[in-house]
Amino acid sequence: MKDLKAKIAELKKKFNSVSARVKDEKSLQEVRNTYLSRKRGELNLLFEEMNALKPEKKSQAGQMINSLKSYIQERLEKLKKEIAVKERPVRKIDLTLPGEKGYCGAPHPVVLFQQEIEEIFLSMGFSIEEGPEVETDYYNFEALNFPPHHPARDDWDTLYITDDLLLRTHTSPVQIRAMEKRKPPIRIIVPGRVYRRETSDPTHLPMFYQVEGLVVDEGITFANLKGTLERFIKTLFYEKIKIRFRPSFFPFTEPSAEVDIECIVCGGEDEKCRICGGSGWKEILGSGMVDPQVLKNVNIDPEKYSGFAFGLGVDRTAMFAYQIPDMRYFYENDLRFIRQFALK
């Protein structure tokens, strides 16, 4: 029995040294035959030796031999895998062949830009509100302080459906609808399509997108309007952009302001700049403090509450930001144009 134990130990040692030298399938097979062959394999010889033992020792010896057997089997199995990996043929490939291209569709630039605008205002605590495009004269004009027959209406050349129904000329009617619906504080933006009776040319379209904004609360000031719009513009363009607020007129705000930003193309250096005409400024927003009459029209007390409103043309601003020379490109839907915005 002692003999057998020693033999097993020696066999294991021998196996370890032999198997360490196995390099390929052939030498592996040799080792396997040496140890595991059913006829003359070393292990079988051990089993035969075991059979000669007394029955009470047999089972203990059997356990020892079996454990060596599974050790050898596992080891050989592992070697087999290692050799397989080593011997796998590696074909040379042409690494210079082009890579496989995927394809992804592209967003429309106006939608893309509108969403950029929306994201900025959402981050400032605004929520998004919508309203009808087919609007009444009351919401589009009268409630916004455009009396009937007032020349101010000429600046908003209108497409009419009936005497009373029209295609909204701005997103401002949603201001009125929002203020009718709920009490201040109100902090909304209104994106959407608006319409003008204009023939298409490089800078005019009969339909375009606008984003309107409205903030109404106690103690809202012109300074708040400036702070909000400056933050917005700096986020949309860049932090150091020059911004100018300039007095203007809108029937539904008082005081009113137009907002100009520095020409990002020429910086005012090019007298013939086709973006700014050499002035160095580009108008991008209309804004102002909500006119007290507009607040009264929706039963909000202008002595208690104040507010500001603003609006910007999405297409026009996108045109400026992406330096697109012709507004009509947006609605030609040439895929060679649109696909560029997959990169944005």
Partner: peptide, 25 residues
Amino acid sequence: ITRFYGYDKIPATFPPLRELEPSLD
């Protein structure tokens, strides 16, 4: 008065956010 005082002299401040509305859309 503001027009002649100069819009550029008005400070830029952010309106206090007193309430956050639930997302409507």
